[in-house]
Design a protein around this nucleic acid. Structure first.
Lengths: 354, 354
DNA sequence: TTGTAGGCGTTATCAT
DNA sequence: ATGATAACGCCTACAA
């Protein structure tokens, strides 16, 4: 399939024009081995003149490396995946590092249907390393990742912890982040603090629940199951959860929400119901996305370093790929990065608001 | 570099186990040519047992096709590119189609520094087709795209028009979208309508300006240069532009803004300055991103089908790649998709608001 | 310092 | 219906 109108310059032609062998062309272009400056110049000139660009494909094939860092993303048809702050930030971070290292970024969409087969990406030589995003603790997923680990492929799970496994991962201390959030609410004088959490198949939801409990405990409060709500991180689910909250609004004076989007849904519902702002519970959300500071009132939120998580994960993996020597050392001592989150206080939980 | 702990099953082993030749293994796995059902079963069994996965890399090399659809994105270090609704939506759309076609999606970050060299992606066989996003009309860019066209590579420019060229493109009728927006403001009784536009190197900014002018003209209004502002699509730039607007707020009773983010910045400034909502000009923004309906007041906005643009672009290109036969017909008759935008009216421009 | 030649894992053509 | 084999474009010992 020759799509182009012109024939692509071949290495052979370059060699001829430069009056050297093809091997020499390769060496010059890769800058390996000793070579006469004159030869170098001749080759470079010829290559430039012919507009020769070596086939990355053939090169990959010969070197047995794809040059790609794969990123697994949840595939949710029509779900506007990228709209989520979470993935956007991570991908930006990953992208910047990948670029520095001269790798390419291959997007891989996980499907809910098919059984996961992460290994295949390596077997098929589509990727040299893999970052798994949006993973959740389900039997199939665990199994698939375990296989990756058994085969000692270079991969990293981001923002998800699998209890009982020792998968290499870059995660955030969501328990501590949540503890701080709820503790802040307590110090703001809240006595009955509700919690709108995400699905517990995400370890960060579990962590947040622990942090919530811990903070209540430390503050001498009891956990009231009535004040626990669950959503799926979407705005709509926050909106719906808010309906159930309304009947408790006279007592519930604080609310911790597992992400900004759901919190926005909650605010939307409150506003629609014409609940006066002074009657809102004090709210702290999570993620500190762009949206947090434009809501009314602006949302206090726990800032999560998604961009940095991306850079850290990518850097770690590409380092391995670069010096394939130290590889085994890495695998014997799997990574366990745990980053810190930071509470950003805004009007939604600020005493001065009322 | 053998990263895995186990040896990868080779086609040869499969052939041995199945008691056939390697060629037969290939044929079975690719489902080409006639074959005995029995042979087929034997091979499939052997392959399954050994966990054999053909090397996509070697396959690509042999077939001379990468299997990748490339997407060029603006590279803005640390700029949290993906946070932008615009790219997120398009990538989601592209991703869904790419997946259907069994291709992979390769993200390519353009750099402001280096001279563009889109051709290289093809020459290097990194991609079979290319979608160019976030392009702007600058000499280097024009030149680079022209080369792609001359070489008849399958590519598509999205949401950007190059006047005087005949590049294949998928664009939106921003002139009409803007005309409707401003016309709506006029019908809402606005007499002095400001316009916060984006940089004119984006054709959509030029289009919006035409639409704005056209609407004013049709409504019998004059264009007042004092009411023209320029930002760079960021919230911050909207915030800054708002400062300059404030002195005109007594006369300026309408405002058209080229995207939601800038409009949010404007609202933010107004709010900070404690300008009473009743004194706000009636506002219509652009993009109709998620954020538009959560601001206070909710933003009227021109909805742009970004997701669909992505799907359309990807579908077109992959069709070409699939049936390489019709290729030339395609190139002789370059695509020119022009999608429609749609005004969504909300409180920010609604007469009932005041 | 440079040329020669073998190998990488497929596909595809040509025999059988 | 299946087996043998050239070709794909590059890298890399090894030889000169």
């Amino acid at each position: 399939m020759e799509m182009s109108g012109f024939t692509i310059a071949t290495r052979k032609e370059v060699a001829e024009l430069a009056g050297v062998s093809e091997a020499t062309v390769s060496r010059v272009l890769n800058g390996v081995g000793p070579m006469k400056e004159e030869t170098r110049a001749k080759v470079l000139f010829a290559a430039g003149k012919l507009g020769y660009v070596p086939s990355a494909l053939a090169r990959s094939f010969a070197k047995n490396r794809s040059g790609n860092l794969g990123v697994v993303l949840p595939y949710i048809p029509k779900a506007r995946l990228f709209s989520s702050y979470y993935f956007s930030e991570m991908l930006s971070g990953i992208g910047s590092i990948v670029r520095e290292h001269g790798y390419d970024l291959l997007l891989l969409f996980r499907s809910e249907q098919e059984q996961q087969e992460y290994e295949s990406f390596f077997r098929a030589q589509k990727v040299d390393a893999l970052i798994i995003l949006g993973s959740r603790d389900e039997p199939g997923e665990r199994e698939a990742i375990r296989k990756l680990q058994d085969a000692k492929y270079p991969f990293l799970v981001v923002n998800q912890h699998f209890e009982g496994e020792s998968f290499p991962e870059v995660d955030v201390d969501h328990e501590e982040g949540s503890r701080q959030a709820v503790n802040h609410l307590i110090r703001q004088g809240c006595n009955r603090i509700g919690f709108l959490n995400g699905p517990l198949s995400y370890s960060n939801s579990v962590d947040r629940l622990s942090g919530y409990q811990k903070a209540l405990e430390q503050g001498g409060h009891d956990l009231t199951p009535t004040y626990l709500f669950e959503g799926n991180f979407s705005r709509r689910s926050g909106y719906e959860a808010a309906e159930k909250m309304i009947e408790h609004l006279t007592e519930m004076d604080g609310l911790f929400v597992a992400n900004d989007r759901m919190a926005i849904g909650v605010l939307q519902k409150f506003r629609e119901q014409h609940i006066p702002e002074v009657n809102y519970p004090k709210i702290v959300a999570y993620d500190d996305s762009d949206a947090a500071e434009i809501t009314v009132p602006p949302l206090s939120s726990v800032r999560v370093p998604f961009y940095e998580m991306g850079t850290i994960a990518a850097r770690k993996l590409l380092q391995i790929c670069d010096d394939a020597v130290q590889t085994n050392k890495w695998f014997d001592d799997p990574v366990r990065e745990l980053l810190q989150a930071e509470l950003i206080v805004r009007a939604s939980s600020d005493g001065t608001r009322v």
